[in-house]
Write a protein that binds this DNA or RNA. Structure first.
Length: 494
RNA sequence: GAGCCGUUAGCUCAGACGGUAGAGCACCUGACUUUUAAUCAGGGGGUCGUGGGUUCGAGUCCCACACGGCUCACCA
């Protein structure tokens, strides 16, 4: 980053600022009585005739000057507020001495203006400025008006500039707010209670991931930033809340990619007395409602994919997917060596570890890339799902689904294991894996088992990544486009 | 973490073969009382990501490093 004083454009703006102060004008004004937003005026007066405009009366707006066109003894500018843009028109014979100051405005400056509405020769709704006030001098030039700001590094590092100049960026984060609001409305209407559970946890549970570690000094206690809220939300089922949800941050100390940010937002919700098939229907309804609200259609384009969200969505059993991919009937009982022989020519090596690692490998390599249209992958191996309820007719499988859209995992859900004895046994298996150095194992949480011992109603729970869901609805290729301030290395190295 | 690609004016981008760095927009000066990528005339602006090396000479070639993008690996 260059020294601001080295830059001619910044130097000139500083000089203008000093000149304003020298005249006794505060360049960083204060309160300004805003009575209209740009969009209100466009909506109310978009079709008004000259008489109606004349009778409309005075307006008072504030915002950022984003364009200026000097034109002799008149000057046009565009003012941008949170709702949109509106044109300003200043005349030497209308503003008097103040006109000289108006033409000194720079793009980027915040101003407040009052005036009357009229329509220019070319038909644009415009404020004829009567008075104006400096609200904040901008000392840095904005990016170019035509090509805008494209450099992704600058767009992420200086998101404030991205938001000033790129309407698409503003639209994504506006959609994000509508998305989250839509989820809340959907769940609230169905009797779910929104809760907040610890972000700092002594045992990072509910998922398998490398956590961030931190320390509480007064308690001299190591804590982890949560990797999932799951175990706390299920403690609330024990406590008697039958439908709960949380929309909040998770933290995973892992790689960064177009699909991964170290902190990301998830929705998790739990419904007592339901099972995973109820949640498949609920998920379809939720996506349909959101698609209508955000896109007005169930047909979406996401990158190279054309998606049809119309339910019911395809359901594919985990082992059916593997079987089809390998051309070999595979069940949890199938001999590992047999599967390994079928998988090897497809480029999947088996290192002799447990069978479930091979199943997972085959599925991720051969099946997931084929899942473009919304697909529930159902009935996962028990070993991959230490917190899920076993299927009644086959204890080697669990009542679980993952939703895939455009090859990306969008949701993960299961009927919750509420048998404390089985839960403890599965935690111990995981602990044994961990003891053997497997970091892909769930931590043992004894208090969670104790909670289950008090009795947890049968329930189903689901997690949905909000950032990724927004990628789909906003048709974005990278999670960094859906997170306001994605994690980057600090500027200038460490 | 690995591979590939990128980094030139405030912004968007050009810069064959190594020979003193360019354009558009933005900015400054002047003209212009309904413009809107305003127009017209003139002008200023650069440690070419950083540090080394090769060379008479490096934006350009070589090495290292920094930051970013994409792909892969781990994961959601």
């Amino acid at each position: 980053m260059t020294n601001p004083d080295d830059n001619e454009l910044i130097r000139l703006r500083r000089e203008k600022l000093d000149a304003l102060r020298g005249r006794g004008t505060d360049p960083f004004g204060g309160r300004y009585p805003v009575t209209q937003w740009a969009r209100d005026l466009a909506e109310r007066l978009g079709n008004a005739n000259d008489e109606e405009l004349k009778g409309f009366g005075p307006v008072s707006l504030a915002g950022r000057v984003v364009a200026i066109r000097h034109h002799g003894k008149t000057c046009f500018a565009h003012l941008m507020d949170q709702t949109g843009r509106i044109q300003l028109y200043a005349r030497a014979d209308g503003l008097g001495d103040e006109y000289a100051r108006f033409v000194e405005l720079d793009t980027g400056d915040f101003v407040g203006v009052t005036g009357e509405m009229f329509r220019t020769r070319t038909g644009e709704l415009t404020v004829a400025v009567k008075t104006f006030a400096f609200l904040a001098k901008s000392l840095r030039p904005l990016p170019e008006k035509w090509h805008g700001l494209k450099d992704v590094e600058t767009r992420y590092r200086q998101r404030y500039v991205d938001l000033i100049v790129n309407a698409e960026a503003r639209e994504i984060f506006s959609m994000r707010a509508r998305l989250v609001h839509g989820i809340r409305a959907f769940l609230d209407a169905r009797g779910f209670l929104e809760v907040e559970t610890p972000m700092m946890q002594p045992i990072p549970g509910g998922a398998i991931a490398r956590p961030f570690k931190t320390h509480h000094n007064a308690l001299d206690l190591d804590l982890y930033l949560r990797i999932a809220p799951e175990l706390y939300l299920k403690r609330l089922l024990v406590g008697g809340f039958e439908r709960v949800y949380e929309i909040n941050r998770n933290f995973r100390n892992e790689g960064i990619s177009t699909l991964h940010n170290p902190e990301f937002t998830t929705l998790e919700f739990y419904q007592a007395y339901a099972d995973y098939s109820d949640l498949m229907e609920l998920t379809e309804s939720l996506f349909v409602e959101l698609a209508h609200a955000l896109r007005g259609s169930l047909s979406l384009t996401w990158g190279e994919h054309s998606l049809d969200l119309k339910p019911p969505w395809r359901r594919l059993a985990f082992f059916d997917g593997i079987s089809q991919a390998l051309g070999l009937g595979v069940t949890p009982a199938t001999d590992v060596a047999t599967i390994a022989r079928a998988a090897a020519p497809r480029g999947i090596a088996h290192d002799g570890g447990p069978a479930w690692k091979l199943w997972k490998d085959v599925f991720e390599t051969l099946v997931e890339p084929t899942l473009v249209q919304p697909t529930f992958v159902i009935d996962f191996p028990t070993e991959l799902s230490p917190l899920a309820k076993r299927k009644r007719d086959n204890p080697q499988l669990v009542d679980r689904f993952e939703l895939f859209v455009a090859r990306h995992e969008m949701a993960n859900a299961y009927s919750e294991l509420n048998d404390p004895i089985d839960q403890l046994a599965r935690f111990r298996e995981q602990a044994a894996l961990q003891a053997r150095g497997d970091d892909e194992a769930h931590w043992l949480d004894e208090d969670y088992v104790r909670a289950l011992e008090y009795g947890m109603p049968p329930a189903a729970g689901e997690g949905i990544g909000i950032d990724r869901l927004l990628m789909m609805f906003a048709n974005q290729p990278s999670i960094r486009e859906t997170i306001l301030f994605p994690l980057l290395r600090p500027e200038g190295g460490r």
